[in-house]
Design a binder for these strands. Structure first.
Lengths: 204, 204, 204, 204
DNA sequence: CATGAATGAGTCTTCATTCAT
DNA sequence: GATGAATGAAGACTCATTCAT
């Protein structure tokens, strides 16, 4: 019916993948359009048929990259019912992204954060706001804690702050793992984190 | 016989400060030598009297930046005796760097991590290895946990993993704060973190 | 599918010609990439599509320049049979390069010699060695003298030294001509040189 | 009486020597004022007490360099009486400069020629003209040939052209020697040159 | 006088973007 | 649509020259 469009989507995605891998390896600023083109097995000019600028490419790349988290998280959350299960789901979906896909891709996270802090990618700013995403994450997690407290599972804690702390561990572990994969065991960290955290906030 | 006398140390430091501030604002890769020179109120060429290259400038800047943490931490640790006090010292020195100095400077952290992950600053690599620094941090914290367990204060936990988790919260909070200072209260986080964490790992 | 089609060889040659002319006029070290680009009616960046660096440009220019001599010499030598004819061919091909092509180009010779003496163009050193070229020239001329002696045309002379002297006149005349074209008559010099030299080395 | 002036002369000369040696090694264009200062064991600024500019330094250096030839030649010519002796004196003084002084200094010759051809050192042009020097050399040599012909020693040759050829050998040998000292024997060349040349132009 | 720290004009080189084919 | 050759603005770095001490 509309084969050209499918083809376009695919090629666009191919470019994005090439861009993400290149950026993961050397950082967005060090990636040359040329390299992306080569890695995507297309001409340099062709990239500009799909994106207006380098900025736009990495804007789109970051969005696509973040989407993966959301998808994974959403899937895991579906089956989670109790607050405990929900927290577990978040912990494990965060930790598991490092196993899914090409783990090298996770290096992109540092650029995502950098963009979030500096907000100098105008293309990205138009459609994406990491600050809001973090707020949303916090809302989700906060409601879990809130539920837990109401249900008498968790003791009375400062929900907002515990939320920040909870999300912080996940990001912080990621950083350590990105810097030194050999000396950081994410799987085990997930287990211990769940265990310890529960102890820390549970009643009794 | 009597050439212009300048405090080389001081001027070097002025350049470094200018570089750090510029990098904090826009990211290392987006800082131009010209900008640093202008900010330091000196000529472009003068910078090259103090540093061999842009790479070296930011290598030195990162080292100086990290030194601040170490200094602050060391100071706090001096007075800490019990494991609990020591953990508290680490938590607070990490959180307090955001109050000391120009808080904007803390944005540099994201570049420091990026360098640590990508390791593409050869000048920096010669004299500085973030991986090792993290290992050292881990050793210090691990020994605190070890002491705490021996003293019967902490329950039997997987020291290595809890160490990672403990350091992770600090970094993770930093990221959240860097991205959204308004919605993250570091001070309160420190309190709650100490409280919750203690609960999580203490005996009973 | 159908990118801009350009004769890469031709354009490369155009750049080289522009570089040679500029260098002939002001000396290699005083030529700016900008100037070459302007003279070749192309953009500055384009030059770097054909050459890696300024050094490489002048390496290639020198090689192309020297090639002209060899070609001219080879052509003349083809018809020469007797030692006398051969020497004449060498003399005239050396002298005639100043008439062929743009005579201004001959100024490049001084840079060629400078490179040969200093050998500081690494690109050039990889593929070209003036010392060897002179050795080869000497071998060729020496064998002519050798033949002439065996044939009883030339008297017993120190072949190696006479060879050096013979080649020296050609280079030396070139220098004088380059410095003061009005007061040096290369054509006449060729005649007299042949005549005198023959007298000097012939039997009787 | 006037010790300061002597001191100045000496220091000026020291600078010139340093400049000459540096230029001999790497070519005028590649010598930095800094290097000259270091080699002369003085401050960079001090150089500008003695010379207005880099151009002036090398203008003066070239003049001093050329003076050496003249001095040597003049000394040798004093004792020469017959045309043969005079030619011999010129040949040997030209060849012997390579033994006197630091032979490495002879590399400067190529820069001298380059300046002579391009004439782009305005400072030098004011007080020095290689073209005129060559003319003068030619006049001297020509008068020797003229005398020789009148005396019936030399056969009737085209004086101007033979003069050029005679001077050409000397320069040409120098070039060969500069490029490849191992394979060029200047001493022997002088002998053979004298011998052959005499044969070439003598009566019978 | 002597110095060397400071300077900024000048250069090479890179690379995102354009556009003729 | 696809391409890659061409481009020039931008940026790191050099170095002759100045000038405060």
């Amino acid at each position: 019916m509309c084969p050209k469009i499918v083809d376009k989507k695919e090629r666009r995605h191919k470019i994005l993948l090439a861009a993400m891998h290149a950026a993961a390896e050397k950082g967005i600023k060090n990636v040359k359009i040329d390299e992306i083109a080569k890695a995507a097995h297309i001409g340099k000019g062709t990239i500009y048929e799909y994106f207006q600028s380098k900025e736009e490419i990495f804007g789109a790349a970051i969005i696509e990259f973040m989407q993966q988290f959301e998808d994974l998280l959403a899937k895991k959350m579906l089956r989670a019912v109790t607050p405990q299960e929900k927290l577990k789901a978040i912990i494990y979906s965060s930790i598991e992204v490092s196993e899914h896909e090409d783990p090298e891709l996770m290096n992109l996270l540092i650029d995502v954060w950098a963009e979030a802090i500096r907000q100098d990618n105008e293309e990205l700013n138009k459609v994406f706001n990491m600050k809001e995403i973090y707020c949303e994450y916090r809302k989700i997690v906060a409601s879990i804690f809130s539920d837990g407290i109401k249900s008498g599972i968790f003791r009375k804690i400062d929900i907002e702050t515990v939320t920040s702390i909870f999300l912080a561990v996940l990001d912080g572990l990621m950083i350590q793992w990105l810097i030194d994969k050999e000396n950081v065991n994410l799987k085990k960290s997930a287990e211990v984190l769940y265990d310890t955290f529960m102890k820390g906030i549970s009643i009794k």
